[in-house]
Computed example of a mutant assay.
Amino acid sequence: MLAIAAAVVFGFALLLDFLNTDLGFHDLFNFNTLLMLGLFLLALYFAGVGSGPRSGTGGGSGRRFYGRRPGRG
């Protein structure tokens, strides 16, 4: 979820940069602030904070083998 939020922030920053506007807020919506916010969200995502992909929890973890298992001869 944080990676999606970072993508939205980066897309918004890119759109503001292409349109060369700051929406009337010179210090709030500038390119550097949105870039830092997007990088912060990506750093949180890579650190494991938020609802990202999880492994080893619940009954859906591990490999599923249907029929013969590979490597068993």
Rank of each mutant, 00 (worst) to 15 (best):
L2V: 05
A3C: 05
A3Q: 15
I4D: 14
A5K: 04
A5W: 08
A6S: 15
A7L: 04
A7W: 01
V8S: 07
V9H: 11
F10Q: 13
G11N: 15
G11D: 15
F12Q: 02
F12T: 08
A13E: 13
A13K: 15
L14G: 15
L14Q: 14
L16N: 10
D17P: 00
D17M: 10
D17G: 15
F18N: 02
F18M: 09
L23T: 11
L23A: 06
L23I: 04
G24I: 01
G24F: 00
F25D: 09
F25R: 01
H26L: 00
L28I: 10
L28S: 12
F29P: 03
F29V: 11
F29K: 03
N30L: 02
F31D: 12
N32E: 15
N32M: 12
N32G: 10
T33I: 13
L34E: 05
L34W: 08
L34K: 05
L34I: 03
L34H: 10
L35C: 11
L35E: 15
L35R: 07
L35Q: 11
L37Y: 05
G38M: 07
L39E: 07
L39Q: 14
F40E: 07
F40Q: 07
L41N: 08
L41C: 04
L42K: 02
L42P: 04
L42V: 05
A43C: 12
A43G: 11
Y45N: 13
F46D: 01
F46C: 01
F46M: 04
A47C: 12
G48M: 01
G48Y: 06
V49C: 06
G50A: 02
G50H: 03
S51T: 11
S51K: 13
G52L: 00
R54W: 06
R54Y: 04
S55R: 05
G56W: 06
G56Y: 11
G56A: 03
T57P: 02
G58L: 00
G58M: 04
G59P: 06
G60A: 07
G60P: 01
S61P: 06
R63D: 15
R64D: 13
F65L: 09
F65K: 14
F65G: 09
F65S: 10
G67C: 08
G67W: 05
G67K: 14
R68Y: 05
R68T: 06
R69N: 03
P70G: 10
P70R: 08
G71Q: 10
G71E: 04
G73R: 14
G73E: 08
G73T: 03
